[in-house]
């Protein structure tokens, strides 16, 4: 079974996110009112072969812990896992 798994990696709360600050500032400059804050992270989309959704999610979690996220500066969440036809 093949799964599309999306993991979302975000700068940790309390860690300065200069990219997010610059984006919020730029949005304000463009006239978008009410942007109190922006944070910028990354999404990694994986096509994963695994017997069941739980296995695919578990594999993605281990990949985040090992490589995809840096625990010092980033938090991650396995967002979605959907079966690919």
């Amino acid at each position: 079974m093949r799964w599309r798994v999306r993991v979302r990696i975000m700068p940790r709360q309390g860690i300065l996110d200069p990219q997010g600050q610059a984006v919020a500032h730029a949005l304000g400059s463009l006239g978008f009112a009410g942007v109190a804050a922006a944070r910028v992270g990354r999404t990694v989309e994986l096509a994963l072969d695994a017997p069941a959704e739980a296995d695919a999610r578990d594999a993605a979690k281990r990949m985040c812990e090992r490589l995809l996220a840096n625990p010092v500066t980033e938090d991650f969440v396995v967002d979605t896992a959907e079966a690919l036809a």
Binding site: I15, L16, P18, Q19, A22, N70, V72, T73
Partner: peptide, 17 residues
């Protein structure tokens, strides 16, 4: 070295971007 855990901490994007 920080990524490898040989030294503690991390090097994040410069504050001034």
């Amino acid at each position: 070295l920080c990524e490898a855990g040989i030294l503690p901490g991390a090097l994040a994007r410069n504050a001034g971007l």
